[in-house]
């Protein structure tokens, strides 16, 4: 029977929604028994929260003062120490999981399956390659452990009606001190998180300046939406990099995505193709964004956006 261990992502005593999406992915493996491991300096609240996820049988707490910051070189040996008896180890395809999981895979002597978007069987998965321009079906060797990251935009969070057992383990491993956390410069927390918001409003290079990007923030606030941006807008310096949506930024799947002044380069479209409804507002009716938009409006964003903001306020 497949036994899946999921490495939880969390911060400030709360689980990141990416973990519930990993559980949903693992639940697609027939007959899988799912456990979640929480590495933290104080894992109690996160463990209690994760124990309610439907499909999770056991939550394993690993408390260690060296886990106060998420350092892959410190966490990988601890993950490896609890993998005995598991057929699969999953983590989210967020910067947390992308940093940690290949380090785990290498210590276990296997390649990793990156960005699972569909489970076909216990050792068969679909994943995107070439910026999402192709989807490849992969088969992992049946005689070795499967280490994988889960493309979180492909899954809906597992519901919270479970009741898993919680137990704590102590790991007796010498952990490295060669990597030291100094500082986190986090973006504004007043808006819904880009990766989990139900609605996301994104702006592109056509905004033309940091000041004009205010239009995007105002519309987003009227809609209670998260805010994203195209790579062009980030490269032009209008907004910080953590707002970038696309192949090298965030891959998101909101119910409603509103792309404003974004032409729709393939690298951007890769980041939004699982959105429920895509709205495009652009003055160029030939822009590629209209090829994927469910609702398109051709026109000047500087008149349309304030009008739309009024209409939804």
């Amino acid at each position: 029977m497949p036994k899946v261990l999921i490495v939880a992502e969390h911060a400030d005593g709360k689980a990141n929604p990416s973990t519930a999406k990993c559980v949903a992915c693992a639940s697609a493996i027939p007959d899988a028994e799912i456990h979640v491991v929480v590495l933290s300096d104080d894992s109690e609240n996160v463990a209690n929260e994760l124990a309610t996820l439907a499909g999770v049988a056991r939550v394993i707490r690993v408390d260690n003062s060296q886990n106060s910051n998420t350092i892959a070189a410190v966490q990988a040996p601890q993950v490896v120490a609890v993998t005995d008896g598991y057929s699969h180890v999953f983590g989210p395809s967020t910067t947390f999981g992308k940093d940690l999981m290949p380090r785990v895979a290498a210590l276990l002597g296997v390649n990793q399956v990156s960005d699972i978007m569909e489970v076909l069987g216990s050792h068969s998965f679909k994943r995107p390659v070439y910026a999402g321009n192709a989807v490849v079906t992969v088969e992992t060797p049946s005689d070795s452990i499967v280490v994988a990251t889960v493309r979180v935009a492909s899954y809906r969070s597992a519901p919270n009606d479970g009741d898993a057992t919680i137990d704590a383990v102590t790991i007796d491993a010498e952990l490295p001190v060669h990597t030291r956390f100094l500082e986190l410069q986090a973006g504004s927390a007043d808006r819904p998180d880009l990766q989990t918001a139900a609605t996301v409003v994104s702006g592109g290079r056509a905004l033309g300046s940091t000041e004009s990007f205010d239009l995007i923030y105002k519309l987003a606030d009227a809609l209670g939406a998260g805010v994203g941006a195209s790579r062009a807008a980030v490269d032009a310096g209008y907004v910080p990099n953590e707002m970038q949506v696309g192949q090298t930024g965030k891959i998101i799947a909101p119910d409603l995505y509103i792309a404003i002044g974004i032409s729709g380069a393939i690298q951007h479209l890769t980041g939004i193709k699982d959105a429920g409804t895509i709205v495009a507002i652009n003055k160029d009716g030939e822009a590629p964004i209209f090829e994927v938009a469910d609702i398109g409006l051709v026109g000047d964003l500087f008149t349309i956006v304030p009008e739309l903001q009024d209409a939804v306020s």
Binding site: I71, F181, L184, N241
Partner: peptide
């Protein structure tokens, strides 16, 4: 990183 910039 997803939430911003981390310095190590």
């Amino acid at each position: 990183v997803d939430v911003g910039l981390e310095i190590v």
